[in-house]
Design a protein around this nucleic acid. Structure first.
Lengths: 200, 200
DNA sequence: CATTATAGTGAACGAAAGGTCACTTGTCAA
DNA sequence: TTGACAAGTGACCTTTCGTTCACTATAATG
């Protein structure tokens, strides 16, 4: 025992599924990338679909652990500039962390096929960010850093464009730098509109 | 001759590729959906990949014809309310037109595999809408319907959230009505922020 | 009417897919 | 030392895939 092959299979599956999709991946290649022969994989998972479901379980658990609970919320920014800094820090992680980026790709590719992937995709791409920033903006309005407005609407207006550029980075990685700059510019523009006048 | 089978194959391919992806589609099913036996397809296309390329050609040409030229631009709205009306009309078409919706799905599924799909996806999901509304907003600023600002930035801030909700409709069609309402609410909110004061 | 190209059929093929199984190897507990 | 078990191998099975091909029916052409 004391073997991590079962986990390594999931890692390899994430990599291959995110590049070629579930249907476009075969377990011969998958196992070869681990230095195994394909029958070896079946010692750990009973089928290709079982690998997929285990991977999805892991992605769902990871998301719940990392973004699901309210207490994991980043601190409310102390200034408008802090919002931009917080945003850029989060975006940088999300774009450059290989595992998170591959998770997004997998969800993109399988969202029409698997109901659980669909649900998780909506969280990753839309509601997760919106909910998070709804709380942040509520806090900022209480601190009088943002003009009073519907925080959920502002969060949607703030996160959706950022999410669109993250998708662009996934699709065309060579545009990552430009997209990052655009996110920062957008964040500043957002603050210039919604930031409470009187705060430096 | 006088046969439209070649076109019908592309229609069926769009349908199947948009649901199951390229790798997840087999030509037995594809031809069966046309009342053919699979070998019949090869009288019209020499391979599965040739079908895919022809479909992509058609999607690219369709996009260029419909959204590519500047003269196809919708008229600049005459009032802020008109912007919402124009937006809702465009979104309604884009969401409910089966062919356009399937095109988006196919591009979503194949964007990481095919460079041409990748390029078209970026146009469909990001730059196309942004460019279009950059022109519209420029016109609205000239008419003093919008506060003077960077029209490209406003267009990005306006279209990206709408695009996110269109994606939601593709992913979870049962949420279409809610998404539509949210788009309309967002449009009005946008106008309440950027609309030039003094216009009713 | 004879001809010829076109659209479609059905059987067959080789390759590749997912999956099974008898067997070997290495590790640990009794 | 031995027994048991988990991990990995390689041959093999079945199904399905994309593709080919000889053939037929049809409809337009000379």
């Amino acid at each position: 025992m004391a073997n991590d092959t079962k986990e390594r299979i999931l890692e390899a599956a994430l990599e291959m599924f995110s590049q070629n999709g579930y249907a476009g991946t075969n377990i011969r290649e998958l196992s070869a990338s681990l230095g195994l022969v394909k029958s070896g994989v079946y010692k750990h998972y009973e089928s290709k679909e079982a690998i997929w479901n285990a991977l999805l379980d892991q992605m769902i658990a990871y998301y719940a652990d990392r973004f699901g609970s309210a207490d994991r919320l980043p601190p409310v920014p102390d200034s408008p500039e802090d919002l931009t800094r917080l945003t850029m820090r989060m975006v940088n992680v999300t774009v450059h962390d290989k595992k998170i980026a591959m998770t997004r790709k997998v969800l993109t590719l399988e969202q029409f096929r698997d109901p659980r992937a669909r649900e998780l995709a909506t969280k990753h791409f839309l509601t997760g960010l919106t909910d998070m920033f709804t709380r942040i903006f509520t806090g900022m309005m209480e601190k009088a850093l943002l003009k009073k407005d519907d925080p959920a609407m502002l969060a949607f207006a703030y996160t959706a464009p950022i999410s669109a550029l993250i998708h662009l980075c996934d699709r065309e990685p060579e545009k990552t730098d430009g997209a990052m700059a655009q996110i920062e510019a957008f964040s500043r523009h957002f603050i210039s509109i919604y930031g409470e006048a009187g705060h430096e």
